[in-house]
Design a protein around this nucleic acid. Structure first.
Lengths: 397, 397
DNA sequence: TTGAAAGCGGTACCAA
DNA sequence: TTGGTACCGCTTTCAA
């Protein structure tokens, strides 16, 4: 160990003297000959290393610009080369135990942390994934985000969050995604096909969450909404419901459209009357307003209302019970989609289709990680089925 | 315009010939003389520029390693210098209109996007802020996160999300925060004072959300929980409630502890009996379990139960009404904290203290931005008051 | 206004 | 195993 230190110190001395020699011998035109060694020497002396009479940016540190601790500082202090320091922080590298111990000790003393930005620049891997989400207030998405985050963190990747409010300039937002050199993207947001093709053109691995494209094969994790909606209708119809109404999601929600479509299809197949459909916005208020609208237009309550998500169903149930004094499920059945936490609360105990959020998020993370490792894998869709929850807001016999 | 092009082309030609000359004249030992020019030339020819018989990493691109479009490519194509390209993407830079137009045109053609990673390395500003959140499933936090995200995006900063699940290794997680050279941190998570001092030691601007430190002045945005709890107790006591119980937040939640403390203090001041306190976990189930526990230990229901947050209050109300057949508010008053969206649903209409989340998040973002611009500002606390919502779960006379 | 060149803080290759 | 060096792609002087 002490022998080792001696050798290291010798190496350092060599480095410094080489620099000094270089500095003296170098001709004005060959400005940049010994560069990395100069870096070490500069840190060693703490002095400005003037080249062509110019002060380097680094030396500005003395004038108050906060400078972070770098691997050069650690190398200096330990009397070894900078590359040795770098190697010690790389998992599979070949470093002697004594070297590693020394470096780790000095690094701790100096409070050194490797700079991920610098690493990314050379490795071309940022270990960053962008997660695009339309609105976090949806109640369904925080769960997705949370799960995605955990999954990525477990795999050593960080999540760069992009929320896309309705008013926002999506193009500008997406541009930011490129700038940050993310390794991949999970998109759980309302994106136009153009935006999606942009991902392809840039060759950035991406996975769509709960949405696909009609005319293009893309990587996606989805839950079969049509199947779910059909199950819902089948069960309600089997229990004798005849007149249906739908409070749909907004038109720009693919998931919402599919839920409506599946319900309509199945109703037609069963020879039941086409449902009255009012558009909602996925929030509590839409559910309430939707119900009022339906009752007004129908002149009475339908047998069953299929809501585009749980929160609207909850709004619908509350309005029926507390405002219109319509007993649910005795006079009116209400069903939702998603299986969010509040749907299980005793006051509601909603009949709904639970999405396997955790599995889906896990699948999305896995898929993206795989795609990053093997970018040329053929597109894959992982389709999950929703689970029917027979709650207490529907008369299922 | 055409004259301009001619000049530019001339500049390029000069560059390339200079490179060729250099390559021929350079002695083996002076490997690194003309570097940037070599870069341009390498891109121009698409050929390997061997130095000392070694192939540079860049040339590996031809063998399938995806290489991104850089400012050099744009410079090449436009026949101008790379620095000119860089300047065109810097807001206040001095560039002629014709130059800017040309660069933008070529950049669009080549699909060029500046690399934020490289920029960060030299500017020492990543435009990244870390947001630390304990658990997103809390229902209260998604709102905070969403608001923070919007605020930062508005100011050109991106959010790097860190979720800290209970089991997670917080130290390792925090280490990641340093690696990514974030410009600042918003911490809305359970952090030990040691972790917070780590922020200080590293001189990273940070703002605590809804928590402070006892023995250290830190930047924080908080809501006065003690004041809120006192208001709640005062109102309930004024309406004749005598026997109180508390379903508290978990012991490691500062906010929860303060709510409990404020309530206890005020009860003591009013000469009322000390409340029975059971610990909850901020979830629906804790509220239900807490109520059962209280009733069992008391042998009857208390007059009022103060819950550490709305979700527990909701669990409490549901269990009272549907399981124990205890009329709320007739037989039992239940109050919560936060004012989350479900607290306003008709089935609950909770009496609660609403936190001005939006204002608080906005304040936190503002504060952090200010701190990043002026790191030596003295610590500041911005304290908001909660708003009392007189809902229907308490008999307030 | 434009171009040349020196870094930012790492990684990875090579030679020893 | 270790040290030396050339980059990664950008910003920022400085000189022209």
């Amino acid at each position: 160990m002490s022998a080792f230190r001696k050798i290291s110190q010798a190496a350092l001395a060599k480095t410094i003297s080489a620099k000094k020699a270089g500095a003296k011998l170098v001709a004005p035109l060959q400005k940049s000959a010994p560069r990395n060694q100069a870096k070490i020497a500069a840190r060693a002396t703490g002095n400005a290393s003037r080249e062509g009479g110019r002060e380097s940016a680094r030396d500005g540190a003395r004038e108050g610009i906060k400078r972070q601790v770098t691997s050069y500082d650690v190398a200096m202090q330990a009397g070894i080369s900078q590359s040795a320091v770098s190697r010690c922080f790389k998992p599979g590298a070949s470093v002697s135990p004594s070297m590693r111990a020394l470096v780790m000790k000095v690094a701790r003393e100096l409070n050194y942390t490797p700079n991920a930005i610098a690493r990314s620049l050379i490795t071309r891997r940022s270990n960053l994934v962008a997660v695009l989400i339309s609105n976090l207030t949806n109640l369904y998405y925080p769960e997705v985000l949370s799960e995605l985050c955990q999954q990525f963190e477990k795999r050593g990747m960080r999540v760069l969050l992009f929320t896309l409010p309705h008013e926002a300039d999506v193009d500008k937002m997406i541009a930011q995604v490129w700038e940050y050199q993310v390794d991949g993207v999970v998109a759980a947001a309302r994106l136009s096909p153009q935006h999606v093709s942009e991902f392809e053109r840039r060759q950035i691995p991406f996975v769509l969450y709960n949405r696909t494209l009609q005319d293009k094969a893309v990587n996606a994790v989805i839950c079969d909404q049509i199947e779910g909606a059909r199950i819902l209708v089948s069960r309600l119809a089997a229990a004798g419901h005849k007149r249906f109404a739908i409070i749909s999601g907004p038109t720009d929600s693919v998931v919402g459209q599919e839920r409506t479509k599946g319900a309509r299809e199945r109703l037609a197949e069963l020879g039941l009357a086409a449902p009255i459909v009012v558009e909602g916005n996925y929030d509590y208020h839409s559910g309430a307003a939707g119900l009022r609208d339906i009752v007004r237009r129908l002149g009475r309550a339908p047998d069953a209302i299929i809501c585009g998500n749980d929160v609207m169903a909850i709004g619908c149930v509350d309005t029926a019970r507390h405002e219109l004094k319509l007993a649910v499920p005795e006079k009116l059945s209400v069903v939702g989609f998603d299986g969010v936490e509040p749907s299980r609360w005793l006051s509601y105990n909603l009949t709904t289709l639970r999405q396997p959020v955790q599995m889906m998020a896990q699948a999305a993370a896995e898929m993206l990680i795989g795609l990053i490792a093997k970018p040329d894998s053929p597109p894959e869709k992982r389709v999950f089925s929703a689970q029917f929850i027979e709650g207490g807001t529907s008369a299922l016999g």
